[in-house]
Simulated assay, not measured.
Amino acid sequence: MAMGLHASSRRRGRSGRRAPVAEINVTPLVDVMLVLLIIFMVTAPMLASGVPVELPDSRANALDQQPDQVTISIDRQGFIFVDDSPVEEGRFPEAMERVNCSRPDAPLITLRADKSLDYGRVMAVMGELNRAGCNSISLVTQGSVEAP
Rank of each mutant, 00 (worst) to 15 (best):
P104I: 03
H6G: 12
Q66I: 03
R14M: 15
E88H: 00
F79E: 13
R121K: 15
I39K: 02
P86F: 00
E23P: 00
P93A: 02
D83L: 01
A44T: 05
L5Y: 09
E88C: 02
A132G: 09
D114F: 15
P107N: 08
Q69S: 11
A147T: 09
T43S: 10
L47Q: 08
M46I: 09
I38C: 12
V42G: 05
S136W: 02
S102G: 07
N25A: 10
N100R: 13
P56F: 10
D64N: 07
T43V: 14
L63D: 05
L55T: 03
Q77L: 11
I109P: 01
D31L: 13
G120I: 04
E146C: 01
M126L: 13
T141I: 01
R112T: 02
L108P: 02
S102W: 00
G4A: 14
D114Q: 10
D105M: 07
A113N: 06
D118G: 06
P104K: 13
P86D: 01
P104H: 01
F81V: 05
P107C: 07
C101Y: 00
N61K: 12
R76F: 06
R131G: 07
A147L: 13
N130H: 03
R76A: 15
A62Y: 02
P28R: 06
C101P: 03
A48G: 04
S73P: 11
M123C: 00
N130W: 00
D68G: 11
M96D: 03
D57L: 13
V87R: 01
V26M: 12
A147M: 08
R59S: 11
V21G: 08
A19I: 07
S73R: 01
E146P: 05
N130L: 04
V145R: 05
L108K: 11
D31Q: 12
